[in-house]
């Protein structure tokens, strides 16, 4: 069976839209099926991988950080990078200009800087490409 590759373009910033959760589910499912995955994070989506994110307590409920066990998108990405570290491979590229605009260069390991030319190459070499735009 020939190898398959799925490319996703993401644009939503973290903690804004269910689109991010669905994208993570698609990436996870594809990797577990042995499908290589490319991600091109554009605009606010470059913040998904930002290492400076930290979980927080809930002062309204009086719960601690540990009790809240608040999920961060950077941790989701780190988990996906771990699943896709070899074969299948997860290739996650953050748009460099978008990163600079947002001061979001401090990304988790496994995320690299690139540009729209990377997205074109990904799309041309993939089985299919899914663009998940902001509304």
């Amino acid at each position: 069976m020939s190898e398959k590759t799925l490319t996703l373009a993401l644009m939503d910033p973290p903690y804004e839209s269910a689109n991010s959760t669905t994208a993570f589910r698609i990436i996870s499912s594809a990797l577990k099926k042995g499908i290589h995955v490319n991600v091109f994070a554009y605009e606010g989506a470059v913040n998904l991988a930002m290492k400076d994110q930290s979980p927080h307590p809930n002062p309204v409920k009086g719960t601690t950080v540990e009790e809240e066990d608040h999920p961060t998108t950077k941790n989701f990405i780190s988990s996906l990078v771990e699943i896709g570290k070899d074969s299948p491979l997860l290739n996650w590229v953050n748009c460099g200009l978008c990163v600079d605009e947002r001061g979001a260069a401090n990304a988790v390991e496994g995320v690299r800087r690139g540009g729209p030319a990377d997205f074109l190459k990904m799309a041309l070499e993939s089985t299919n490409t899914l663009v998940i735009p902001t509304r």
């Binding site: 799925l6 594809a30 899914l130």
Partner: peptide
């Protein structure tokens, strides 16, 4: 399911619109 969606996405001659 999402698993079924992924199977559709990598199917032959398939176009996808979100």
């Amino acid at each position: 399911s999402i698993d079924a969606l992924v199977d559709l996405l990598v199917g032959e001659n398939t176009k996808v619109i979100w």
